[in-house]
């Protein structure tokens, strides 16, 4: 991408701007996902009065996974930059009015917070590494032994996660040249979508984390035995239900924010209405209703509700659907946003 000013006073915007391919939406998705994971694991650290023995399997791997995902996200962002060698310049200044500047500085703080949180859980997440590198183990133990440090790490993860999540939405809404993105609700929308995908990831991890003390399944067929593992109820009995409930509340809020987002656009100018119609009835309507609203929000809501009621088996399908819905939301909003235009409001 050519680094654009965000108004229409540059020649790349008219008549249509189609510069963002798959990189930006994927970055926004991964950023939101990491934000959600940070908030949830930070909250878990704050709540559980840190005790290594109590650490739940899927929470301890979350910071490491976040680091990997965020790095992947940063890579996509970097791939998207036109002037790749100039990227260090972002860190020479701080411009309060520029969302890109905010973003690059938030990301600078997110890494240490994630590393600290990963160190804290290292003992439980990678026991072998702990034996190989006693230095890391000592750091980890001294951190965990220090109540203040644990609280600080938890708090920093929650706050930075929230900032990161909102920033992924603000990045779009700051680009005033696109009426569809011209909504203050995009920040909270992406934050809650990030939270729901974060909870879904943790849920998925809880299904995939092997349960201790279980023999190999009695199936001779290799394919069947691998798949049967996926269908088992998650290892943590209580944590998974809490995650389902948390995920459902995030999804409900996300749905409400989507409704407000469209309500706001539809009561605004003709350009905003035309932008919103791109998603509601226009060329993005089918993927939007089917993948974002249908299979991304409503279906997992229903499935997780029934799972929480113990009416149906607990599976990883709703978690996968939520992740798919979050990805689709980013792709569709970025794609449709670039097609929305102010000039439709002209006579």
């Amino acid at each position: 991408m050519i680094e654009y000013t965000t108004t229409r006073h540059n020649p790349g915007v008219d008549p249509i701007l189609h510069l963002w391919g798959w990189e930006i939406p994927l970055y926004l998705f991964l950023g939101g996902l990491v934000a959600g994971l940070m908030i949830l694991s930070g909250y878990h650290i704050l709540r559980s009065r840190w005790d290594r023995d109590q650490a739940q399997g899927h929470y301890v791997t979350a910071p490491l996974l976040s680091l990997a995902l965020l790095s992947a996200g940063m890579l996509t962002l970097f791939l998207d930059l036109e002037h790749k060698l100039q990227v260090w310049r972002l860190y020479l200044t701080f411009r309060p009015a520029s969302p890109m500047s905010w973003g690059s500085w938030i990301l600078l703080f997110v890494y240490p917070a994630l590393v600290a949180s990963a160190l804290l859980t290292l003992a439980a997440s990678l026991p072998r590494l702990r034996q190989r590198l006693p230095v890391l183990a000592r750091v980890s133990e001294s951190l965990a032994g220090h109540n203040g440090a644990v609280h600080l790490i938890g708090f920093a993860n929650v706050v930075l996660g929230a900032m990161l999540g909102i920033y992924t939405g603000v990045l779009l809404s700051a680009l005033g040249a696109r009426p569809l993105w011209n909504s203050a609700l995009l920040g909270p929308l992406f934050l809650f979508s990030g939270l729901s995908t974060g909870a879904a990831t943790l849920h998925l991890l809880s299904h995939l984390t092997p349960r201790a003390g279980e023999g190999s399944p009695g199936f001779s067929d290799a394919l069947a035995s691998v798949m049967v593992n996926w269908l088992r109820p998650p290892s943590a009995q209580d944590g998974s239900r809490k995650l389902e409930q948390a995920d459902n509340s995030f999804l409900t809020i996300e749905l409400a924010l989507l409704a407000l987002f469209f309500g706001g656009l539809m009561t605004s100018t003709l350009a905003h209405q035309t932008g919103a119609r791109l998603l509601l009835t226009g060329p993005w309507a089918a993927p939007f209703w089917v993948f974002v609203v249908g299979s991304g929000i409503l279906l997992p809501l229903l499935l997780q509700f029934l799972q929480a009621q113990r009416r149906i088996q607990s599976t990883w399908v709703p978690a996968l659907l939520v992740l798919g819905g979050g990805l689709a939301l980013r792709f569709i909003l970025v794609g449709a946003g670039q097609a929305s235009h102010w000039s439709v409001a002209l006579p």
């Binding site: 067929d221 069947a224 798949m227 049967v228 996926w230 269908l231 089918a286 089917v290 299979s295 279906l299 229903l302 499935l303 029934l306 009416r311 149906i312 088996q313 599976t315 399908v317």
Partner: peptide, 25 residues
């Protein structure tokens, strides 16, 4: 294509409600 996506969803939903989800042959 969209109809068949729905078939997968509907089949899964009905299977889940009837507790007939199994990885078997």
């Amino acid at each position: 294509v969209f109809e068949v996506l729905g078939v997968f969803v509907g089949g899964f939903l009905s299977g889940a409600l009837g507790n007939r989800l199994r990885f078997t042959i």
